[in-house]
């Protein structure tokens, strides 16, 4: 019997430069658990993209990462504006990020596609005006 390990982080919506703290911490924690480096890389990149999205679009939110025997699950929950057309948002190159974000090197419309690319399962639940919850899983086997 092994117990599930869970990490929870508040993602600060006001401070763009601090985005990445949660994913860096997760990277460190997973390394301590002895998880395979390639899996750590996939989890932390997918989570960083999600964190950046929450900062750019949703004034922050909460990230929860849990490690079970089968997979690592990342749940990103925000109370932002929601995504009106998920299919369109998933297209590479589509972005609604403002110009000041682009000067920082983001807003290329690659965030959600990267999150899908690096995970084995991804589900987006979103309601305009209410918020978005993204669930991602990376299999451990």
């Amino acid at each position: 019997m092994s117990e599930q390990v869970v990490f929870t982080f508040d993602v600060d919506g006001d401070d763009f430069t601090s985005a990445g703290h949660a994913s860096m911490q997760v990277k460190k924690n997973l390394r301590q658990l002895g998880i395979d480096p390639d899996i750590i890389r996939r989890v932390s990149i997918a989570m960083y993209e999600g964190e950046i999205n929450m900062v750019i679009h949703a004034r922050g939110g909460v990230a929860t990462v849990s490690v079970s025997e089968e997979y690592i699950e990342i749940i990103l929950k925000d109370e932002g504006p929601g995504i009106s057309d998920i299919e369109q948002a998933m297209q590479e190159g589509f972005s609604t990020a403002p110009d000041n974000i682009r000067t920082l090197g983001f807003g290329a419309g690659m965030g959600l596609p990267n999150m899908k690319r690096y995970t084995d399962y991804m589900n987006i639940e979103s309601q305009v005006g209410v918020g978005t919850t993204i669930t991602m899983r990376v299999n451990l086997e």
Binding site: A19, S23, R41
Partner: peptide, 15 residues
């Protein structure tokens, strides 16, 4: 040519 703080996060995550 990107040299802001986010560059570091990306460098670290991609290893």
């Amino acid at each position: 040519i990107m040299s802001n703080i986010n560059t570091l996060a990306v460098a670290s995550l991609t290893d």
